[in-house]
Design a protein around this nucleic acid. Sequence first.
DNA 1: CCCAGATGTCTTAGCGCTGAGATACATTGC
DNA 2: GCAATGTATCTCAGCGCTAAGACATCTGGG
Lengths: 174, 174
Amino acid sequence: MADHVDLVLAQWAVRRPDLDVSPMAVIGRLSRLSRLVDAELRRTFTAHGLDAASFDVLATLRRSDPPHSLTPAELMRSSMVTSGAITQRLDRLEARGLVSRSPSASDGRSVVVALTDAGRDLIDEALPDHVATEARLLAALTEGERDALATTLATLLESLSEEKDGKGGKDKKA
Amino acid sequence: MADHVDLVLAQWAVRRPDLDVSPMAVIGRLSRLSRLVDAELRRTFTAHGLDAASFDVLATLRRSDPPHSLTPAELMRSSMVTSGAITQRLDRLEARGLVSRSPSASDGRSVVVALTDAGRDLIDEALPDHVATEARLLAALTEGERDALATTLATLLESLSEEKDGKGGKDKKA
DNA sequence: CCCAGATGTCTTAGCGCTGAGATACATTGC
DNA sequence: GCAATGTATCTCAGCGCTAAGACATCTGGG
């Protein structure tokens, strides 16, 4: 019943008994789990000729209102990557004919990125496999555990997002 | 109370009502959380002249028995990165005088990586800040929630690790 | 009306990692 | 002994991302 993180905690207890390393029980597992999950998801993406970055953009467009178009700035905020990363992702997807870029009618600085028919077909085909993979990765949990996990992760996500936005902030002056 | 993932789930319910995307409630939050956590941890590492990769290696060595030495292969298994990544991490740390490499006495193919005094001083100085940062990131949870979260993540971690090792195989029954 | 600051997109250098493979040494079965 | 296989380390090209910054365009207060 001891995973890698349990061993790490036991080692720290010997080397640095002065430190309370208990937060690692959560953060350490979160990190390792994320790596394992990413690796598994990648297999599904590869099977459909995609990678995580491309899938992310196509899925975000697919979720948006028809005609499934967003600006690079919106994609950037949704994806948590920099603007340079979005530019390059779109370059790759555009070269493959999966998205199109056209100047925005309402904002001269902006661009409208839209799913092409080929892009929509590809993401619609990959999606069922993707969610099936996700479901398989969670198969070890009961439904109750899954729900509780989602709730707790949502709590953490909100607390970190707020911190990042400066809302309420840490404890410094408002 | 609605985080980004709740919005994503609501969008999929409209665009693809045929799909059960509920696994995203967990997997999606796991991914985003991991990104946010990594970004926060990085700030602490940077403050000590480190990055996540260097910290990982130094901390792994520090946890090992005195004289705090391991082989690249052991570091590779602990870190979940490829051998090429370990070689490069060690190149950087060795160039800074934080670790040393010497040929193994017992295995002609192998190398012994050891913390130098400077490396040990650096990791011992950074560690308290690091665990403090981790504790701050979890401050939104009660102790009970933290424990339950650690337990559930451990369950997932074990199930994915076993799958990877081929133990029990991919197919359900043993 | 106009300008200063905010915003949107793209460019580029540099970084760390992967994946494939090269090389050397170790181990096992015969 | 020795061939076949496995293990340990390193090399290197290629990839996607970040950070910093260049431009163009928008917006709101004098």
